[in-house]
Design a protein around this nucleic acid. Structure first.
Lengths: 253, 253
DNA sequence: ATCAATAGTGTATTATTGACACAAGAGTAA
DNA sequence: TTACTCTTGTGTCAATAATACACTATTGAT
């Protein structure tokens, strides 16, 4: 929660800088040790967690806004971003309204305005991203999808909608490519699919089908060091991947 | 194009009534005589065509805005509406900016503001909708998809994006149900699928698959009056349809 | 009565999916 | 060094779904 002074300063600056009534919230997915992770923030002197978000500069394309916001949170450029929904319930920021309404008159107060928020999901390589809190937040951390608490505002809904979208777009967007590191094993990739789809897949059939798409290159060297049989390492054949996606991968999971 | 007086009146009223910088544009699809149709408007004293659109009341959920706008254009309540994309290029209304910038100072001039527009596609029963121009437009008409001219602003892009979305959602949204009249023949339904997918389908396999989904009820009486063998009439079994959609129809087209 | 156009139905072939079992490699512990 | 356990890699068979294709039936027009 902001102090009165911070609120005043932020509001004045925001009104001069950003489009009013419009915000962007990002669901940033990463994949680590077989788990889907989401980037969450908590605000100083507030309980509860938020998705990272921000506003649109008065003359900025919204795709750039989303990129800018995420660059600040992750240090990454050129993030894979996909717009998925606008949340437009007039009551969606009620919590902020209650929290800030007595600190500043409505006309000046940025946080008692109504905001439509544009939801983006982002896919990043977990190892490349370095979570960084913004000026108002104490922490910016990866949270396991299964351990995400109830979020503030409507951010739980936003997260859920992002996940549903991810599931539906699994055959049409380069989701594996953007979430996996450069090299990975087949079981790791399968884990990602299982996590997103929330169901078990048959190991052998998964491998057959994945290889059938012709989008994977097998590396010469297997992964070393594991306690068991060394799995092969794969990487995506980006050209084939993109070509295949324009058609969409046939069949469901 | 508005006169200076109209522009002034409209701007003053709009600023008092609507959220600034946000608009809604609707791609309204209908299906008639084997053709996909789109609802288009042309503005008095302007050449070129627009998609129907409008703005969001200051305290109105955006889904209601879209419904309200379409009720005015079609006379229909409870339209099937699906949000599909936000168009946020700062230059997207450049044409309006040029057209209106000298008529009123920017601070007052509603039509030289930047607008993010939320795209909705709507599916309506062609026979139920009665196209009605708004106060600024001379005509509101159905246009065959193949005969849509280049549209004003970025509306050609919006239409194209809506079509792509329709194609992708064919197995996940009740698209046939909302576009077809209560009763229809199998060849008519096939035509709809062929139009949306932009490819020919095999008559026999289409019928087998459609019936296999278990979402159609065959009426006792065939369609009378045709110049050839009378086809059976079908209607959707809404309950089964909805149940099937939660899973998505298996397989692609 | 014949023709042309459209609608309804069935079957054989092929491709895809799903279920399942065994062999191979890598560390571990006797 | 050997046996054991865990994990990965691969093959096969049966069921299912997709595809290609041909014939029959009905209607209005001539």
């Amino acid at each position: 929660m902001l102090t009165e002074k911070e609120l005043k300063e932020y509001s004045d600056n925001a009104r001069a800088t950003y489009l009013p009534h419009i915000s962007i919230d990002c669901v940033v997915f990463g994949f680590h040790e077989g788990m889907l992770k989401v980037l969450l923030l908590n605000i100083k002197n507030e309980t509860g967690w938020y998705l990272p978000g921000g506003f649109v500069l008065k003359d900025e394309p919204i795709e750039l806004s989303a990129n800018r916001i995420l660059k600040e949170r992750t240090g990454l450029d050129d993030i894979f971003l996909q717009q998925f929904h606008v949340f437009g319930d007039p009551q969606r920021s009620k919590e902020h309204f209650e929290m800030y309404k007595d600190m500043l008159p409505r006309a000046e107060n940025w946080f008692t305005d109504r905001f439509l928020t544009i939801g983006y999901y982002a896919l990043v390589d977990f190892y490349d991203a370095i979570p960084q809190p913004d000026i108002f937040s104490a922490d910016c951390v990866w949270r396991d999808l299964n351990e995400v608490p109830e979020l503030r505002l409507d951010h739980t809904l936003i997260l859920k909608t992002a996940l549903d979208t991810l599931r539906l777009q699994l055959n049409y967007q380069p989701i594996g490519y953007n979430l996996m590191p450069k090299e990975f094993t087949m079981p790791e990739l399968q884990k990602l699919y299982e996590t997103i789809l929330d169901k078990k897949l048959d190991r052998r059939n998964f491998q057959r089908r994945m290889l059938g798409f012709g989008i994977l290159k097998r590396s010469e060297k297997p992964r070393k060091g594991g306690a068991h049989k060394a799995p092969y390492l794969y990487s995506f054949d980006l050209e084939n991947y993109k070509a295949a996606l324009t058609e969409g991968f046939k069949g469901g999971w």
